[in-house]
Simulated scan of single mutants.
Amino acid sequence: MSKIERFDVGPRLSEMAVHNGVVYLAGQVPDDATADVKGQTEQVLAMIDKLLARAGSDKTKILRAQLYIADVADLAGMNAAWDAWVPAGHTPPRATVEAKLAKPEWKIEIVITAAV
């Protein structure tokens, strides 16, 4: 049986797990919820960069991205941050859905699966 490595394990969730060369991130949300959607998205993408680096991966190895946006009217701002972050030629499969997030001040939550 392959080893499962968990990072930042808490009572409810782990921030990340690595198994069989794949890294699975928990939903990442902004620290500063006072920012607009572009700013919140930039914060979350920076968190994703740090977590992937800890697992020995990076954004060029993303296998799938799931983006949850509180208001689809904010799509352009979210996409502006995303487009500036994702490397050309490495755009992953992505789903974006409007969703009621756990805290009303959050505008974005992103879940990533990547190869190590």
Rank of each mutant, 00 (worst) to 15 (best):
V44F: 03
G21R: 04
L25Y: 02
R54Q: 11
Q43F: 08
A95H: 12
R6V: 08
L63S: 06
Q43Y: 11
L63N: 13
K103P: 05
E5T: 10
E105T: 11
D83M: 00
W82P: 01
K38A: 09
W82E: 01
Q43V: 08
P30L: 09
I108P: 10
H90N: 09
D32E: 13
A84N: 01
R64Y: 07
P87V: 03
R94K: 09
D8G: 12
D31W: 11
V116L: 09
L52E: 11
I108L: 08
P87Q: 03
L52D: 10
D8Q: 06
E109T: 11
L25Q: 01
R94A: 11
A81D: 02
W85V: 04
D74P: 05
A70G: 12
T34Q: 08
D32M: 13
G27V: 00
N79P: 01
L63I: 13
M47G: 07
V23C: 10
P11W: 09
N20T: 02
A55S: 05
E109H: 08
R64S: 10
D8F: 07
D71E: 04
A17F: 04
D58K: 04
V29H: 15
V72Q: 14
S2T: 04
A115N: 03
L63D: 13
V29N: 12
E98A: 14
V9K: 06
Q43K: 08
V111L: 06
L63V: 02
D36L: 08
D32P: 07
W85N: 03
M1G: 02
I112K: 03
G27C: 05
N79D: 13
L13T: 13
K3S: 05
A70E: 07
P93Q: 15
S57M: 06
P87M: 00
G56P: 00
L75M: 12
L25G: 04
P11E: 11
D49E: 04
E98D: 12
A80T: 14
I108Y: 04
K50W: 02
A76S: 06
K3T: 07
D71S: 12
D8N: 12
L75N: 12
P93D: 08
D58A: 06
K3D: 03
V44W: 02
V22M: 05
M1I: 04
V111S: 06
V44L: 05
G56H: 07
P93W: 13
A55N: 13
V9R: 02
I62A: 10
K38W: 04
V23A: 07
V22H: 00
V9Q: 10
K107P: 03
T60K: 01
A102K: 14
K59W: 14
N79K: 10
S14D: 10
A33T: 14
A88N: 10
S57N: 09
V29S: 04
A115F: 07
P11S: 14
T113V: 14
K61P: 05
D58E: 02
I110A: 14
K59E: 14
P92Y: 00
A114F: 04
D32H: 14
G39P: 12
V23S: 03
A114Y: 01
A84C: 01
A95T: 15
V44M: 07
V116K: 01
D58T: 03
M16R: 15
A115G: 08
N20H: 06
G10S: 08
I4R: 08
K38G: 07
